[in-house]
Nucleic acid binder design. Structure first.
Lengths: 228, 228
DNA sequence: CCTCAATTTTGAACATGTTCAAGTAGGGGC
DNA sequence: GCCCCTACTTGAACATGTTCAAAATTGAGG
């Protein structure tokens, strides 16, 4: 563990280690028995620390969840980099990114509902719209900017600038669907992606039709006005 | 309180009364101090019953919330009936329905987040997608079927049949926005509605353009395949 | 090695949603 | 009038997230 400030390095090293221990224990228990059935006491015991100590590093049980989400996103980013390096066709890039998210998140599908539950609360720092999760959100949007920018897609600049945010919203919708999807092997979510992606592609091509252009501009304007 | 079965009438009358008492007390406290700060003990005490008794009528604190939601929806339905009786223009019907929902739900805006929190959980019976809330959901979709059917809108039958469900989804989106909206007097949500409604109208008119027709059919097909 | 302040750790105490075994009330059948 | 059954009511006990004052540890400076 190397940091920029050599002074605090060793000072934080111990704490950092404990933090990691608690976090990994929590994630394991979440996966093994679900979020609801995992108690803070169990996490602490299993990690060999006191309950209070867990709260020293994580303000709440939800914060442990947040940490998991960061972890998941980092993993996804890695996979995405590999995919996007090799593929230039827009639909395949988008489909690849969405499907790979499913892959990465699969082990957590069972208790993902709980994550969404907390995420939906506007006052929660975990809300994807909150100020605190802005970095995570922007990283997520950035993935879709990668998708768009490196692709063969030809679009008016205005739309192209707004598109990543729209695709992010699309993914939010897919995740919402995924959370509720209890079909075998997530077949339904996969089908949703496979049907949505070409649809998005066709929608984007429609913007060339003159009558459509105006509506698209309105949509872009609406999204833009709604953002801050 | 008159019921169809005279025999059980007086038998249930007492319980029904207690139930109402607990419910109204809970809603009042929710409004006065928010959902989170209202304890089951406080509800019970204020209603003059024991904690256990509250649980006899409502399986959980969330069920009290569910009851509130039903209440809100019934209120909205009333207002909607008035509006739709007088207005035939599609955009005004849709706008009226959406704005009146804001009006009805206003007193609960502060703690609505908590409702959404529980609603987002897929395993929760309160989830708008759950089997248990099917009646409530269908009632909600029915409102939008009213909006469409009684309007001056001219559409292909296929789209017209699917439209209420799509408008319901649109409202879900608006409610999600509303939950996170802390602007003065809900200005931002109002603006969202005022910009979205004409946009929807224009989108629907676009379906007359031949090149657009195919995409619309695909969208309808996607929505249909995703529903069950 | 000693001191001291900051960091880390502890576990008991607290708040609150929920459960449950036990009690009460009332009415129908005899 | 008594019994019994169902519906209802109770409050103490429980489970679990969270807090906090106090104790332990650490590392830098002397």
């Amino acid at each position: 563990m190397t940091t920029l400030t050599g002074v605090t390095d060793s000072a934080t090293a111990k704490g950092e280690q404990t933090r990691e221990l608690i976090l990994s224990t929590a994630l394991r228990l979440f996966r093994e028995q679900g979020y609801g059935k995992t108690t803070m006491r169990a996490i602490a015991t299993e990690a060999g620390v006191s309950v209070g100590n867990a709260y020293y590093y994580f303000g709440s049980k939800e914060h442990l969840m947040q940490a998991y989400y960061d972890h998941l996103q980092a993993q996804h980013q890695e996979v995405v980099d590999t995919i996007l390096a090799e593929e230039k066709v827009f639909t395949r890039r988008l489909g690849g990114v969405l499907h790979s998210w499913l892959e990465v998140a699969r082990p957590y599908h069972e208790f993902a509902g709980t994550f969404f539950k907390t995420a939906a609360e506007p006052t929660s720092p975990l809300s994807p719209f909150s100020e605190q999760s802005k970095p995570a959100r922007e990283a997520s949007v950035a993935v879709f900017r990668q998708v768009v920018d490196g692709s063969d897609l030809k679009l008016p600049a205005e739309l192209k600038a707004e598109l990543p945010e729209l695709l992010w919203l699309m993914q939010m919708g897919i995740v919402l669907f995924w959370v509720h999807d209890d079909s075998q092997d997530l077949r339904r979510t996969r089908a949703l992606i496979d049907r949505s992606v070409p649809l998005v592609d066709r929608l984007l091509r429609l913007t060339r039709i003159p009558g459509v252009r105006g509506v698209v501009n309105d949509i872009v304007g609406l999204v833009r006005s709604v953002k801050p």
